[in-house]
């Protein structure tokens, strides 16, 4: 398994290289002169020269690339134009907030998606199944930022249960954290929960028709154990494979959701960078999040091989 992990990490290197090259190249997509776009119409010639020097745009391309990679290998993603601090520092400082909400949202997704999918499969073609299917379809069809706005209107403005936004760190006040993090987490979770429900339902239906489920029933063990042990263990594996996809949707969603709720995480950081044309921050954020996702995906794949004894133990015939 260690060998597998290492080989997956090695495979990720060329992809990571291409990803970083693309992130680097984004600044060249700016039509016309990048410095003019960044500086805005009021910038003087001196300002523009300063911007070019800061971003290294006055250097030849190959020098720029070389500098970019030299810095990257040292963990340096450049300096934010807006905040004046290193991009890496800003991201690391903000990441606990985003990670916290992401975990909360992931837990909601898994609990909601798995249970709905399993309930649907166990009631195949009955009304509970139909209801779960409709729930899942609506879940994957709603824009999450719109859902966030609807929840604010409903739970904050009309019912007054939760604050419209803001953020309280968990370490300071867990209840406060729960009050501020719940709506962002739920609005992020619903889409993925719909996705997970659909996958769980179809996998569960397939597993329930397997011979080993019939064997389990023939032993005279309880139906609860047949489903909760024998079926669930086999459903978990395909579900684990979509974890990477779920995390990816979750992290891209956080830009809009954190902006809406005023949560000071990586998403809001990027949202601000976009509206203020802070390109080093956009590039750095894009690269950072993507690299993190690549690593998480490898982790998920390793977890998968660990879950499946056919791969973990080997010696198959």
């Amino acid at each position: 398994m260690l060998g597998y992990t290492v080989s997956r990490l090695l495979q990720a290197i060329p992809i990571l290289f291409l990803v970083s090259l693309m992130a680097f190249g984004i600044i060249y997509l700016i039509p016309g002169d990048a410095a003019t776009v960044i500086g805005g119409p009021s910038a003087s010639a001196q300002d523009l020269a300063q911007i070019r020097a800061n971003l290294g745009l006055d250097q030849p391309l190959h020098v720029q690339i070389l500098t970019f990679y030299t810095n990257l290998l040292q963990g340096d993603l450049g300096r934010s134009l807006l905040l004046g601090v290193p991009v890496t520092e800003a991201i690391i400082q903000r990441s606990p907030v985003t990670i916290g909400i992401a975990i909360y949202s992931l837990v909601l997704t898994i609990v909601l998606g798995l249970s709905t999918g399993i309930i649907a499969a166990l009631n195949h073609n009955r009304w509970l199944d139909q209801a779960a299917t409709i729930f899942a379809l609506i879940g994957v069809s709603l824009p999450n930022f719109w859902l966030a706005l609807v929840m604010i209107v409903l739970f904050s403005v009309n019912l007054g249960w939760l604050p419209t936004g803001g953020y309280v760190p968990f370490s300071q006040d867990p209840i406060g954290w729960l009050r501020t993090a719940t709506m962002p987490a739920v609005s992020l979770a619903l889409l993925q929960a719909g996705l997970l429900t659909r996958i769980t339902r179809s996998t569960m239906l397939e597993v329930l028709s397997q011979d080993y489920i019939r064997t389990a029933r023939s032993k005279g063990i309880s139906e609860w154990k047949v489903v909760g042990k024998h079926a669930l263990a086999n459903v978990m594996m395909p579900v684990v494979t979509v974890l990477g996809l779920i995390l990816s949707v979750l992290l891209s969603g956080s830009i809009v959701i954190e902006t809406i709720f005023g949560v000071p995480g990586i998403g809001a950081l990027l949202g601000n960078a976009i509206s203020s044309r802070d390109y080093p921050m956009i590039q750095g954020g894009l690269l950072f999040v993507t690299a993190a996702l690549l690593l998480l995906n490898i982790l998920v794949d390793v977890l998968y091989t660990w879950l499946d004894p056919r791969i973990r133990v080997g010696g198959g015939k």
Partner: peptide, 11 residues
């Protein structure tokens, strides 16, 4: 059952 290859739970 008839199918020994699929009648046991693989995990």
């Amino acid at each position: 059952f008839q199918e020994p290859m699929t009648s046991l739970n693989p995990v």
